[in-house]
């Protein structure tokens, strides 16, 4: 079976800048896929290439095996939930949701029924007559979702859909989106810069940096076995130990990642100087310097917090150190 989406050597150039640089990636049908990366990493451009708002400078985008490189957005079996929701301000919620059906020529009673059903699905019944300006951010988000899903797309694209919501609402929506994706069984492609969001929601994650994919894998793989120092730092706020230091400790000349929560402060081990501490609530983050490498250590609540300037010894279990063997130098 052909993958839902495939990028085949896709490059998108804006002037001199390569927003997406030789991207090759398959997204399977029914997958909840996250594109994760900092702003300007090419994740949103990749999504827009699938939606058809951008055309590749080089390469091909296939949707269910069909070359969609020259297909306009309005002929693609995908729908998008926009970052700013892009609700039509002159239409009420019902007409916003029914927009796709209206342009497809569905008669009024049928499309109104479908719109009401879609609003029911996103838990927003009874709002059909309101204008978008009368809704809260969370409600607009749900309308945008209903408006996309009412067209029964084969792939739903979500561009930072939770970015504008507050923490509590965001967590709730994460849960609902997951449930929705499972019950609909369609492919979700989700763009985010929030690693927590990507890890908790997605079946697979692609980590982007500077237009290139750094690593593709399940959340556990990406978190536990980062392929590059960038992934280690961006996805898990993991410590990256430079190759020289790793060589001295283990004899292997590769950079390695070391999770802050796996480091213990003990009587023996790597000597380090405390540079500062910040209180996080459930834990305290300690900043230390060892051999010129800055690292952070997560201390559980109640543990003794050493003073700034003190010398401590860092210790960890065998296997906590993950070698990034694909990279020669850190």
């Amino acid at each position: 079976m052909a993958p839902a989406i495939s990028f085949e050597g896709v490059t998108r150039q804006f002037g001199q800048v390569r927003a997406v640089d030789d991207l090759t990636l398959d997204i399977a049908e029914g997958e909840f896929f996250a594109m994760l990366g900092p702003s300007g990493s090419g994740k949103t451009t990749s999504l827009r290439l699938v939606a058809g708002f951008e055309r590749p400078t080089k390469g091909h985008v296939r949707i269910f095996g069909q070359d969609a490189t020259a297909t306009p957005p309005y002929r693609r079996p995908v729908n998008t939930v926009f970052q700013d929701y892009a609700l039509f301000p002159h239409l009420n919620v019902r007409d916003n949701v029914a927009f796709g059906l209206r342009v497809a020529g569905v008669p009024k009673p049928a499309r109104h029924r479908a719109a009401e059903a879609a609003l029911e699905m996103v838990k927003l019944p009874g709002y059909a007559d309101r204008k978008p300006s009368e809704l809260s951010g969370g409600q607009r988000q749900r309308v945008a979702l209903a408006r996309a899903l009412v067209n029964q797309p084969k792939v739903l694209l979500l561009d930072e859909p939770l970015g504008a919501l507050d923490l509590k609402l965001r967590e709730q929506m994460q849960e609902e989106l997951k449930t929705l994706q499972r019950s609909l069984g369609i492919t979700f492609v989700f763009v985010t810069h929030d690693q927590g969001e990507a890890l908790s929601m997605a079946d697979r994650v692609a980590v982007f940096n500077e237009g290139r994919i750094q690593q593709v894998g399940t959340p556990v793989e990406v978190y536990d076995r980062p392929a590059t120092p960038f992934v280690a730092d961006f996805v898990g706020s993991s410590n990256v130990l430079p190759a020289a230091l790793v060589a001295r400790l283990t004899g292997q000349h590769h950079p390695a990642s070391l999770r802050p929560e796996r480091i213990r402060i003990g009587a023996t081990g790597l000597a380090a100087t405390v540079a500062g501490a910040s209180f996080l609530g459930a834990a305290t983050r300690l900043f230390v310097e060892a051999d010129g490498a800055r690292m952070s250590v997560l201390l559980p609540k109640g543990a003794h917090v050493p003073d700034t300037g003190a010398t401590v010894h860092l210790d960890w279990d065998e296997g906590a150190l993950h070698m990034m063997t694909g990279v020669q130098d850190g």
Binding site: F82, Q83, A86, R102, A104, A148
Partner: peptide, 27 residues
């Protein structure tokens, strides 16, 4: 008119003429 509204119209299946009629002209 935010450009994303025009993209949204296209995304939802409106061709150029429908986008003009249902989105651009009313706004």
């Amino acid at each position: 008119i935010p450009p994303s509204l025009l993209e949204a119209a296209g995304d939802l299946g409106a061709d150029r003429g429908q986008t003009l009629r249902y989105v651009i002209l009313p706004l």
